[in-house]
Amino acid sequence: MTQLGRGDLGPIGVTLDVRPDGGHLDDAALLERLGYTTIWIAGGRLATLDPLRDVIRATSTVRVGSAIIPAQVYAAEEVVALRRDLESTAPGRLITGLGGVHGPRPLRDMNAYLDRLDAADPPVPAGARVLSALGPRMLELSRDRAAGALPLLVTPEYTAQARRILGDEAILAVMEYVVLESDPRVARDTVRESIRFLVKVGGYPQNLRRMGFTEADIAGPSDHLLDELVAWGDIDAVAARLRRHLEAGADQVVLAVQPTDPQTVPHAQWHTLADALIG
């Protein structure tokens, strides 16, 4: 399969962190059994791209996406080799999520990276890759040179705007932090440090300003910013928040589930969310 369509991902995906002890491979098999149709691996934290291959081999049919492979870390040739290997053994299951291009001319640099993927033998086709896009021009690039976009730290209102830019054909998979916790202080504190780091990286600050957040919101990050960017609360509140993204035009909401105890893996939360959202 070389062309991802809007109905191919399923409405609910999930992120998976790679664990040094290899336990993430059992977690991947669990997520597949629970009915999640796409597992997204955080590529920015990987020393190699091998975990993407390992998760695909530890599962049967679920699609596995990179969220994302940073183009400034991994040469295009490494991405080509990974896809070549997996297309020969598990065709159509790898979604090549790309991003991580920072600096003064990110659009130019991403275009050059995509040129190298196009020129490879065999190529990594546009229809099998998505871009970690935020701004309008990168969304347009996602529409024109990829299957779609994979934004993070966005509101449902942003999702509606992104859908208008992407048009009716491109995929829009929105990554959403999820905290199944009704205590506002605990829920916010669970994600505050992760978001404090991200709001200083790449295009996130500029995109937050475009969405109407103030410098004080971003510097905090403020409770207001966290409430607008994170699905937290009981299962009904979380489900309602995710529906807003889907109704605004997202094809899939990717759940980045954050346990209140950072030393644990969110097995219970994955079960609860699957029961409520997938059935």
Rank of each mutant, 00 (worst) to 15 (best):
R6F: 01
G7H: 08
G13H: 14
D26K: 14
D27W: 02
D27C: 01
I39P: 12
W40C: 09
G44M: 00
L46S: 07
D54V: 05
V55E: 01
T59P: 02
A71Q: 11
A75M: 01
A76R: 01
E77V: 02
L86D: 08
T89V: 14
R93K: 01
T96L: 07
D109Y: 04
A112C: 01
Y113W: 13
D121P: 10
A126K: 14
A128Y: 04
A133R: 04
L141W: 06
L150C: 02
V154Q: 13
T159V: 06
R163A: 02
I165T: 15
E169F: 01
M175A: 14
E176K: 14
Y177A: 08
V186E: 00
R192V: 07
E193R: 15
R196T: 13
P205F: 05
Q206N: 09
R210T: 14
R210I: 14
F213V: 12
F213R: 04
I218S: 11
L225W: 07
L225N: 12
G233C: 03
D236T: 15
V238S: 06
R243L: 03
R244C: 03
E247T: 13
L255F: 06
V257E: 04
Q258T: 02
Q258P: 05
A268S: 10
W270S: 05
A274E: 14
G279P: 07
